[in-house]
Design a protein around this nucleic acid. Structure first.
Length: 167
DNA sequence: CAATAGATCATCT
DNA sequence: GATGATCTATTGC
């Protein structure tokens, strides 16, 4: 939370995330165990897990926890910092800057992230997560969005008051 | 402003 | 063969 996601000329601040706990979390993709799709989650931490949702959109996760432990963090919203013109071109008819990446499917389009990035190490390479630009923000907590299981688990986190947090 | 429909496909049963 | 960690346009008040 608060760290900077960088891909080429585009960079943005992570302002909304969700945690998925792996084998003990029925809402998590890795809940059933190791499959071809979830193998990245069972690998070492700090790697991108990008998957297609609803046949149209891609979502970005970062693997967490150690090898064999498939916890991960879903990146749900970003505050655009640089490369705004590029994001706007990729996103089409979007009016406000804060709407460029205020959702899981929107941010992958704005940042140019696709399934080609599945498995990449985000500590080095073209797609990286860097240290936070600023500090001192307040983190809000709520249940996760768009899932059917464990609907009441407080595993969604967001920068309180930030305009780019999704509704 | 709220509710709804439609787009569209990889993955797992 | 059903389903889903979504978004947008459109309809209806």
């Amino acid at each position: 939370m608060g760290k900077t996601l960088v891909h080429g000329a585009a960079s943005a601040r992570i302002v909304e995330t969700e945690a998925y706990l792996g084998l003990r979390d029925r809402a998590a993709h890795a809940w059933r165990g190791l499959t071809p799709r979830t193998k990245i989650l069972f690998g070492p931490p700090g790697h991108a897990y990008v998957y297609l949702i609803y046949g149209m959109y891609e979502c970005l996760n970062i693997s967490a926890e150690g090898e064999g432990s498939p916890g991960c963090v879903l990146i749900r919203a970003l505050e655009p910092l640089t490369g705004l013109a590029t994001m706007r071109r990729r996103r089409g008819a979007v009016k406000r800057d804060q709407d460029l990446a205020n959702g899981p499917g929107k941010l992958t389009i704005a940042m140019g992230i696709t399934r080609k990035h599945n498995g990449v190490d985000v500590t080095r390479g073209s797609l990286t997560v860097n240290e936070a630009a600023g500090e001192g923000f307040e983190v809000g907590v709520s249940p996760r969005i768009g899932i059917r299981h464990n609907v009441d688990w407080p595993l969604r986190f967001f920068v309180a008051g930030n305009d780019c947090v999704s509704g």
